[in-house]
Design a protein around this nucleic acid. Structure first.
Lengths: 315, 315
DNA sequence: GACGCTTACGTTCGTCGTAACTATT
DNA sequence: AATAGTTACGACGAACGTAAGCGTC
């Protein structure tokens, strides 16, 4: 058994049981991969893949168990490299963050600026995506940390750390009557055409729940993935907007009025997602603490170690 | 990087940084080990061991992190073999149980008999030792499961599963006055010379606590590691004995009288200890369930997966 | 007949063991 | 002087790539 063989079976499984494709992705020859897989199978004494004649068509039952362990080992190989990189030079390296629009646009700029100042030698990269994409990126190793509000909870293999709570506001054109409604109610909002987030984004599920709870059917005329699109169309008076509070900046959004709506919706929690049992570079802990000061290195380490797996931490 | 290199650093660390000894234990040459370690270090870009001239004298800080990950990987290598063995032939294999005298002598015989009947092809081995030895055996892989009452809780790397609760009785020669004391009290016991377990065994700590809690200083004239020794000396009337209840069998222990003492002492819980994240053969689950019927395969699997790490389960 | 996996074979690289050398205690 | 680790070198074996062969769709 060797690590290369584990890479082979993992890649073959990942690529829909296509050996040629896996070989290409690993920059090696297809016969080599084939042979090594057979060798591993014979060493372990079980077939990992089900073959129809010469083609791989499924993963066997032991194969599933083997793949799971193999993937854990490959992550550990990665972790070993990380340890090496860390101690070879503590301040040099790279940090890849996967996040959604709202975070990238309104929350992270300050954190990123501070981080780059403190670790000028770390190559920081931000990748924007849907909450699910963001999680997948962390799972397959193409990002180190995920930051999102929705969906993170669905991934067993990720550790979730609550960072901050936030709520929503209503925005409208400057002289819109909704801005003077006192108190602001869901009923008042529902009387206007609405512009807000797409279903899978930025706490939209909470908005739905609030209206549903009151038996209201808001007239949503436009759903957007990001706050800027919402603001653009609200400014055009297509409707009023329900927006994450931190996405409204009076200095920038001059043409728009805002009223707080945190009494109408349940608050949402933005979380950081990390791979379980990952070994993180020192500056990753620094970044996390810069983003959510209560997440000390020690707390995060404990969470990753898995001893508190699945649970949520107190904010 | 390869798995062999991980074995090398692990064995060197385990053997007090003695490369020659590690090489011998791994049936290879000392220069080979030396070279592979240097190669791994250069690949990772950090020193794993601190050297004084040519000698290894300590583990570096990154070395500690590396060793930890390496050991996890080696356990996974083991797990892969286990998966292979399991599916190659479900009913053939070996099961190694490390346990203390009381369990081996009074509790396990029935369980072992049933198990051997059901899995005649599994080579069962029992290893007796102190609670600590028993745990160490599971940790270093020389046993699959540990069964003990004391000490198991101290091992972070083991998962503990409560199996059953038990309490103590007092034994004495047939016409001894303590047998007629009604009700039986700690004070009455403390008036006689006492024979019971050694400090590290079979719930002795609970016995100490009970007497201490009442300000009593029992006159312990003999401490033994196993129940049979206690019974032997009680039969010689050297004193009265405090014994685990399940160790008294009226059919066998004819010369001895017994009174229950469960109202005097806190009950003890016997636990099974398993390595975290181990992959267990099917018959191991069967054995565990035969020993403690409430520990279903599913429950045990969840526990070793680590998601409930550190916690204790409800009995 | 095109795609995909296996078999066969030769080259290359890596690993291991022996032997000689050097440093530490 | 003895013990412990490194360097040097040669032999063996494993892994890889190329090319040809066979099955499946």
């Amino acid at each position: 058994m060797n690590i290369q063989q584990l890479r082979y079976i993992h890649e073959v499984a990942r690529r829909g049981l296509n050996v040629s494709e896996a070989a290409e992705a690993l920059f090696t020859s297809q016969p080599g991969v084939s042979k090594q897989i057979r060798q591993l199978e014979s060493e372990l004494g079980v077939e990992i893949f089900v073959r129809h004649g010469k083609r791989l068509v499924a993963v066997t039952e032991p194969g599933r168990a083997i793949l799971e362990i193999a993937e854990r080992m490959l992550r550990d190989v990665d972790n070993l490299q990380q340890v090496g990189d860390e101690f070879a030079n503590e301040a040099v390296g790279s940090l890849s963050i996967a996040t959604t629009h709202t975070q990238a646009r309104y929350v992270l700029p300050r954190v990123v600026r501070d981080f780059m100042r403190r670790y000028p030698e770390v190559k920081l990269s931000l990748h924007q995506g849907s909450p699910r994409q963001v999680c997948e990126m962390v799972l397959d190793g193409s990002a180190d940390i995920a930051i999102a509000t929705e969906a993170i909870a669905d991934y067993e293999e990720l550790v979730m750390l609550p960072c901050y709570q936030w709520n929503r506001c209503v925005i409208a054109t400057a002289r819109h009557p909704i801005l003077r409604a006192a108190p602001l109610t869901l009923e008042a909002i529902a009387r206007h055409p609405l512009i807000t987030y797409d279903d899978a984004f930025t706490g939209r599920s909470v908005i739905n729940k609030a209206f549903l709870g009151r038996g209201l059917k808001p007239n949503v005329v436009l759903t957007a993935i990001d706050s800027d699109v919402i603001k653009t169309y609200v400014a055009m008076d297509l409707g009023i907007g329900i927006l994450a509070r931190m996405a409204y900046d009076p200095a920038v959004d001059r043409g728009l009025g805002m009223v707080d709506a945190s009494h109408l919706f349940a608050s949402s929690t933005t979380r950081i997602g990390l791979r379980r049992r990952a070994w993180l570079r020192g500056y990753v802990y620094a970044f996390i603490e810069g983003f959510a000061p209560h997440l000390s290195r020690k707390l995060v380490e404990q969470a990753i170690a898995g001893s508190a797996g699945g649970d949520d931490y107190q904010l």
